[in-house]
Design a protein around this nucleic acid. Structure first.
Lengths: 189, 189
DNA sequence: AGCTAAACGGACGCATGCGTCCACTACCGT
DNA sequence: ACGGTAGTGGACGCATGCGTCCGTTTAGCT
């Protein structure tokens, strides 16, 4: 799935790898992407060298760490697609994507503007965007979504949602919920 | 106006002070707040010591550098207040505040979340918010603004607008214009 | 012109984060 | 149990940004 073979690793190495990913997930979600690699290593209980051996760049680490969250995004979009009412499905997608972003400080950059070279993430992102475009097209068909709203507008709003900085996670989630509601109002025909 | 007396300075010192502020304004707008103090000193053609002597902290420098931009914000709000049609005035305020934010990368933080101790900015900010609250109240009276939209929602959207990152100023301005339009749609009754 | 104090800026020491090297450890096959 | 090798993490050198000190320059008054 991700280039490197994780199977040939020795048991302790595999163990450390998992602990590193757990630590990265926690700290990226809580503090954002501006944390030193050392801090992640420290929390994982390993030395810096071990961290750098498994993940040569912060990007590689982030890509792996956010993989499941990216999958959650894809799942949200897929779920929206299957909704019999496209407008309702779109609303759900907006609400849930905003919440996902709010719960993980660092994930925003990965999903919206994407890392320059995170191919795995970028591919899934493109697929999700294509699905969203289809969902929006159908939602316009029902007359609930304003015809002049483009896919770019949705991306725009998601990016803006990422700008909702707040110290506590709870405050961010609350703000994002309100933002999602306002976005839906902006999109409603 | 700002504690320190700038009048007793020697002519060359006063000159340098102005060049520092000009450089700070330019670089803060273009690059954001994450530029080294050294860089500003370099562009102003002075040594680091001179910069630190005039502005002990980056905050002090930013407060002075953004003073006129903050005045522009206040002017925008005041102009909106005098509009005979409150809803139209509010729309103008939203559009122009979004554009001001987009044109200066670093100003966003100063106006929305404000620096912890920038009293000058904070005071004007509070006054502007009070004015905005009044404008919104009147706009609701005309029936054009949705009754359930609060002042906090406007602040929320302005903060979100600050999250619209883009490399070029033109791209940021374009995105902000679209965002302002969507915000107005979200607020419209 | 000469003097004095204000102003200047290069240079210094400190702190932080990065990426890498190497002597030590411990897993795993025999 | 034991040897070989994958794996480890402390330590190192480098780079960048910060804030301050001090010898030198220059404005401004007489």
């Amino acid at each position: 799935m991700s280039g490197h073979l994780t199977q040939n690793l020795r048991s302790d190495a595999l163990d450390n790898r998992e602990r590193i990913l757990d630590a990265a997930r926690a700290v990226f979600a809580a503090e954002g992407m501006d944390v030193p690699m050392r801090e992640i290593a420290r929390r994982a209980g390993v030395g810096p060298a071990t961290l750098y051996r498994r993940f040569p760049t912060k990007q590689a680490l982030a890509t792996e760490a956010f993989a499941d969250q990216m999958n959650a995004c894809v799942a949200v979009v897929d779920e929206g697609l299957t909704d019999p009412d496209p407008w309702h499905g779109l609303c759900l997608v907006i609400e849930q994507l905003c919440e996902l972003q709010a719960r993980s400080r660092g994930f925003t950059a990965a999903f919206t503007s994407a890392f320059p070279h995170a191919v795995d993430l970028a591919a899934k992102r493109e697929a999700a965007l294509a699905s969203l475009a289809d969902l929006m097209r159908r939602a316009k068909g029902t007359g609930h979504l304003r015809p002049d709203v483009a896919l770019d507008d949705l991306v725009l709003m998601l990016m803006a949602n990422g700008g909702l900085h707040a110290t506590s996670t709870n405050a961010r989630v609350a703000a994002s919920r309100r933002f999602a509601a306002l976005t839906i109002e902006a999109f409603r025909a």
